[in-house]
Design a protein around this nucleic acid. Sequence first.
DNA 1: ATTGATCATAGGAAATTCTTATCGTGACTA
DNA 2: TAGTCACGATAAGAATTTCCTATGATCAAT
Lengths: 307, 307
Amino acid sequence: MINITLKQLRYFEALTRHGHFGRAADACSISQPALSVQIKDLEENLGVVLFERSARQVRLTGFGQDFADRARDILRAVDELGDLARLAKDRMVGRLRIGVIPTVAPYLLPTLIQRLHKAHSGLDVHIRETMTQKLISELLDGRLDTAIVALPVSEPGLAETALFDEKFVLVRSAQEAAAPVPSPEGMREMKLLLLEEGHCFRDQAVSFCNFRSTLPSDGLDGSSLSTLVQMVGAGIGVTLIPEMAVPVETRSAPVSLARFKGDEPGRTIGMVWRKTSPLAPQLMEIADVVRLSAEQLRTENQHLLPS
Amino acid sequence: MINITLKQLRYFEALTRHGHFGRAADACSISQPALSVQIKDLEENLGVVLFERSARQVRLTGFGQDFADRARDILRAVDELGDLARLAKDRMVGRLRIGVIPTVAPYLLPTLIQRLHKAHSGLDVHIRETMTQKLISELLDGRLDTAIVALPVSEPGLAETALFDEKFVLVRSAQEAAAPVPSPEGMREMKLLLLEEGHCFRDQAVSFCNFRSTLPSDGLDGSSLSTLVQMVGAGIGVTLIPEMAVPVETRSAPVSLARFKGDEPGRTIGMVWRKTSPLAPQLMEIADVVRLSAEQLRTENQHLLPS
DNA sequence: ATTGATCATAGGAAATTCTTATCGTGACTA
DNA sequence: TAGTCACGATAAGAATTTCCTATGATCAAT
């Protein structure tokens, strides 16, 4: 059992337009017998005669008419398939699903989305905000195209690229502004407010203070940096926040900021994707946009950071 | 520049369904490398990667998703093309354009159309009623599929088959019913009412009476048999009508009917079509339906005819 | 009847598609 | 950490399809 081919439909369509085997063959850049054979094959496959051949002219049969209408639709749809690909190849286009950790998302996204939209307007950006572990799992599952997380991730299936580094700054109540900045060891004497389990930023803060193990939850873990800063403002304790969060989070709470002396705590934010992802080239471009966004944020808010 | 093929779309579609080259290849009854190559060709033709291959699984890219939706539509349309042909091949189906001369149409068509509809309900019958000359020309132009006319036609490009013979009967006013039936020569003494120029039935009537040439129009030519019979009823003259017209035309006029003695005038009605028409087999079947219709009319109306 | 135009057919060349065999790469296991 | 397995890619030759050139057949017009 042979099958209809697009070639046959193309030749058929040409023949309907020219009503003449020789001229239709020319239009298809093939010899007249090649066209004759393909039309014959098509008719035999279908079991129906499509053309009435007379010495004078080649005419569609009634069935041929109906057939031609549908065939044209199909050829058009196939051409559109090619057009679609040609567009997708040149411009960056289509859905892009980005995952971002919660300690980055609120500060980076406004700028980033604006820039992405400006640079690649064909892009349909979807944002997913959750913790690293979930992002990685969704990435590996193919439910995300890339994720912005703290490095290192060291997951075998993923490729990563660094985006920017940022320090953590100490947040104390406004009254403590003049007190000396504690050393990491000194931190252990203070009431340190942390994010809930699962946030990588919590682990980084804990690790900086050289706590032996994860602290038992005391029921005061905050669900966001914003919450932590509000708590600090209320005099409940101290906390760390990444530089990027400073402009937003310290605006509305009576807190003071301080840099650590010596070996400052900090983190590297990077982008990860599946090593097998065909989007890799595009994602490298996206990474550049993220770097520019981070740079912009840093320069815009330089003056708000402690010196 | 190579082209997308339906084969590639079929393989592609199978791969989207199975997400596994080996199983998709099985489903297509080909080897795995054959499928690999075709998918690769497709991707190269498009210039876009459709699948993300990892050790674990084969997943569609975002573009691949869009592509798959359209590809499926195309494959469905092509299959429907095949279905359409399969239907058209078995049953008699589609448009059928029949031309019929005016001295047959009103009497034959009611029965014929009913029978056609019963025998081939898929048939979309179009009727064109006009004089032989126009019918033949439209037939040759491809604007009709077949025509029912008086034979012979003897047009080189047309095939013909006889359908039925019928005699012409004399129509006189009711008062003349008892008068002897005239011979053809005797007809010349009478006021013979004829159809307009162009009707083959006019020529046949004239020829029966052995008139030398076409008579000069006296402004009384009728545009239909119905008109002629009405005129006879009004006492203006006599006329001939084919047997088939008797039941309809003599119902409402005070006329009498008579058969001619000896060599009765008559005609053969037949069907013609282009020798090149692929519908020829179907048309032979249609011709059978016409014969049955004529037979039915004859038996139904036997009692109305003069003996 | 001859010629010209047109589509069909035939045979061998060219291109393509397929199969088998094999490689390379990850991922799981012992 | 090496071994094994699963899976897709690649290679080479065979099989199939498609195409071209040459020629045949038909029909209409001269």
